[in-house]
Simulated scan of single mutants.
Amino acid sequence: MTSTSDNPRNFTLREENGEETSVFTGQTPRQAALKAARRLDPTDSEAQASREEFRLREKGTKKLHIYEGWAWREQAPDDKPDWMAETITEANVSKEGIEHLDEL
């Protein structure tokens, strides 16, 4: 028997106007937020990265997870596979809170 933590959950990126544009999958809201943060415009280093707020709604719920995310470019590791680019996008997130929507 599998626990609920083994099942991926879907989170939609929610814009200011309430429109939901992209879907990110993860076992936790943070996993999905990291995927969303990698789509931000990356800078040359983590220290230069500007933080951007975004909101993810867990599908099937009225729970809105609020994150601050940032992304930067980094050299790929020396043992990277042949298909991987020389530079990769790294990201980090900080959870700002949770809101509950009145309606969908």
Rank of each mutant, 00 (worst) to 15 (best):
R38K: 15
D41H: 07
R39A: 12
Q31L: 11
G97R: 05
T28C: 09
S50G: 02
E16R: 08
A71M: 07
K63I: 14
S94N: 14
L104C: 03
M1V: 10
E90R: 14
A47C: 01
E103S: 14
I66S: 00
R39Y: 13
E86Q: 13
F11E: 10
E46Q: 12
R30W: 01
M1A: 15
A36Q: 14
L56M: 03
K80F: 06
E20T: 11
I98N: 06
K59T: 15
E99H: 07
A49V: 09
L56T: 08
E99Y: 05
D78A: 14
A76W: 02
P81E: 04
W70T: 03
G26E: 11
R9I: 02
W83C: 02
Y67P: 11
A36N: 07
D44T: 08
N17S: 15
A71T: 07
K80Q: 15
N17L: 06
S50H: 12
N7V: 13
A91D: 02
D41L: 07
T61S: 14
E90F: 03
R55P: 02
E90T: 02
N17F: 03
G97E: 07
L56Y: 06
E58M: 10
E15W: 01
S5R: 10
D79A: 10
Q31S: 07
A76F: 03
L104F: 07
E15F: 04
S94I: 07
D82H: 09
Q75D: 15
T87V: 13
H100K: 11
W70H: 12
R55E: 13
G69P: 04
F24N: 03
G69V: 05
L13P: 10
W83A: 11
G97N: 00
L13M: 10
E86H: 09
D79L: 09
D44V: 06
E68S: 15
R57I: 12
R55L: 05
L56H: 05
P42T: 08
E58G: 02
T2V: 12
F11K: 13
F11W: 10
